[in-house]
Amino acid sequence: MKPAPFGYADPRTLAEALEVLGREGEGAKVLAGGQSLLPLLSMRLAAPTTLVDINRVAGLDSIESGPDGVRVGALVRHARLLDDAAAAGVQPLLARATASVAHPAIRNRGTTVGSIAHADPSGEMTAVLALTGGSVTVATPAGRSAVGWQDFFVGPLETSVHGPAVVVDAFFPALAQRSGTAFAELSRRRGDYAVCGAGAVVTLDADRRVSAARTAYISVGLVPQVHDLTEAVAGRPVDTVDWAAAGALARTLVDPDTDLHASADYRRLLVGVLTERTLAAAALEATGRTP
């Protein structure tokens, strides 16, 4: 379990990082927190020619919370995002989901943006990016561009970004008015990858009737997907709504896989259960935010 030989660069600027990436071609990989990449290297499941370590690149470690949303820099560790009250105020899903990311030791090193760029459908933050309708900023030698989550995730561990590029931040739009969120997951052991996880956003109208209910799941499907469950609950007063109907609908929309830890059927069961639980919790929060 020792990596194959690889080159190593530790640029101080983004331009320098992009230059190295351009020079090294497809064999180069960006190293941020290393929590997924380094085990892959050690098991020789990946053998990049060069690691471009961006940890010393200036300007990538900020969390900017504003009325529109939260922008999380590429070097922000999960632990920092988890503890950022301003970010949680703008988009509560960030702290809620980050709390489920592995264990403290991993959260202390792993980066939120790195986890998104890794595009593992078991990663909590991929689902959160999708559910919040977020985007990432991709820097290339040609400049920066925003890439919406739908265009970013292509497959398991696969994104639309190719060539010399660094994902420099992720942007999570603010939670809308009269809305609430919840996040829950079930894992075999505390801190493991979830067998199934769910994030939910519920929005009420001024009469406290449900106007929107959306969910996204982790460890279900190949790429993050947002499911609009509004039709099952639309127009119902929040205190009488039957969330089980939304759970039942969700079960028909997902296409989970079987693996060592859960059958597809069991995952589908959990999708229903977690949908119901998270929607109910999100609705409760939305109620509190609806005058």
Partner: peptide, 23 residues
């Protein structure tokens, strides 16, 4: 978790689930 070909499919601590203190 051996498959029918005798491949051990969970030969790591990610998939072979020893209980943590939390379990």
């Amino acid at each position: 978790a051996y498959d029918a070909d005798g491949q051990l499919q969970n030969a790591s601590f990610m998939d072979f689930l020893m209980p943590y203190a939390s379990e």
